[in-house]
Design a protein around this nucleic acid. Sequence first.
DNA 1: TTGTAGGCGTTATCAC
DNA 2: GTGATAACGCCTACAA
Lengths: 325, 325
Amino acid sequence: MVSIKDIAKRAGVSISTVSYALNGNDKVTKETAAKILQAAEELNYVPHAAARLLKTKKSNMIGIFLTDFEGNFYGNLLQGVKEYVSSKGYDLLVCSGPQSRRLISERMIDGAIILDATFSDEELLQYANNGHKAVVLDRELQHPHINQVLLDNKAGATLAIEHLIEQGHDNIYAVSGPAGSYDALQRLRAVHQAIERVPGLTFTVLPGDFTKSSGEAAAQRIAAEYTRPAAVFCLNDEMAIGVYRYIRTHTDLVIGKHIHLVGFDNTELAQFIEPRLTTIDYSMPKWGALASEQLIKMLGGEPVENERIYVTLVQGASVTAATGT
Amino acid sequence: MVSIKDIAKRAGVSISTVSYALNGNDKVTKETAAKILQAAEELNYVPHAAARLLKTKKSNMIGIFLTDFEGNFYGNLLQGVKEYVSSKGYDLLVCSGPQSRRLISERMIDGAIILDATFSDEELLQYANNGHKAVVLDRELQHPHINQVLLDNKAGATLAIEHLIEQGHDNIYAVSGPAGSYDALQRLRAVHQAIERVPGLTFTVLPGDFTKSSGEAAAQRIAAEYTRPAAVFCLNDEMAIGVYRYIRTHTDLVIGKHIHLVGFDNTELAQFIEPRLTTIDYSMPKWGALASEQLIKMLGGEPVENERIYVTLVQGASVTAATGT
DNA sequence: TTGTAGGCGTTATCAC
DNA sequence: GTGATAACGCCTACAA
């Protein structure tokens, strides 16, 4: 592998001159610089990132940590992150799994974006204490080196429940999320608040874990005890899809008539399914872009405030007005 | 940041002894090793990856390069790769965009998996000539440092067309893929071969680029010239979804009756859409796992052969038998 | 303007 | 068994 030493030899100068020339330092004359650049070109020199990192302590890479690679849930988020960070001269590494965390502690990346419930708060705080910067998308964590960019789960869940109530529904189910999920917890809490505001509702919480199959299980339960139209708020679209699948294949009930359904995330599938799923929408790319903006500001030592991503309700035919009582 | 030097000082030994102890070399006595490990623990030492890499020339990271992060097309592939490589002690970095290529040339990763048409063959060969190992999923490239794991596009496209013909269709369209795509080229070539084998078919190729909107454009064209049932083979599911969307929202034609549709990839959406899309299926995780297996073998200096991923036809109601002539 | 030298955190080769 | 010491490739005062 060719190093600056080789190119120094070929250009007949010292390695420091090469380094200067390569980094565009104007201490070196145009002629020698040209000579050096040419030599570098001829040898097709590429710098060794590790060596530079060792010295400069800056990798110009940022990492985003996801629970897994499944679903196209994250595609737009990643796109948002990538575009922003590369406009700032950073590279993006997408990471998943416990092993890849060494990228943080071993200083391969300059900062991290976390959307991965398998990180514990303690672990993250530990990294922060060791000087690593991060922005978290899935929890609240107070630390000078940690910034938050969170979904407005409360608003979303409230919109969902209020929409069902406005449509005249009074037999309401919520399908919850996995135990460790911050988003699920926030949403469920808001659901309870919205429900309690209106007297006379029948309300049931069914367990769920954000997977299709848990949606199916919930649908089975709902179908089994069906006596009158039910309104179901699944805490994410994935589970709502599970409900669709079960209701359609195992019952004679009809979504949008007997079962009224609301999801959360506005995934691609939600838009294509028939009838279209009523759900909570927000901008994934914006979420990603904002998160990376915050992170890069932190890396530059700028002060940042915690941010929030706003949500809206998109209506589909999966919810219609209740007919009489 | 604490380095082995610090821990050497605290344990009252030399840095080389520390290094030995940390790497589990049995040249050092149990007692000193224990003392050193404890000191490292107390200082909560973490090794600096860049320094190690500089010395050992092994990062234990492999990179997979994708054109973009969109769609959940790659989720299962990535899962397959990740599981395999982490079982072998490697980390996976998911990369996209021109900038991230420096990970290869700057030796941050030990090897690369390429599924990104924006890499040119020349560029890849250049990397290979510089000693970098790669397995390619989207082209044929002969080089001792490059291995191929390709889809059996020919079989897939042939299955698709033959299925349409068997169902009695004789008015056949193919919606092609983007210009640079190896997969698209292979599929289209096989389509032509299958078509030519049967005399008396009406056959039209429509331009496409693997996006939904190009599918919609094709559907528009097909609907405009509609006189009798048409059988359409979209070279991927994404475009087939576009066809659905256009046909459903802009025409009175019915998929599975007037328009018979086949896709390629068996994406999640294809399974949920009504009527279910007939498409070509293959195992994404297996593709990923096989690719990484080949790569890791290459890294270990083992010889490898090019591999192929087999495909099958899955039938949905988007294609039914032609009714009379 | 250019060269010398030291150091970044490791590993590895020697002596002791 | 343990400890100096020289790399690895690059950057950067400081000297010349």
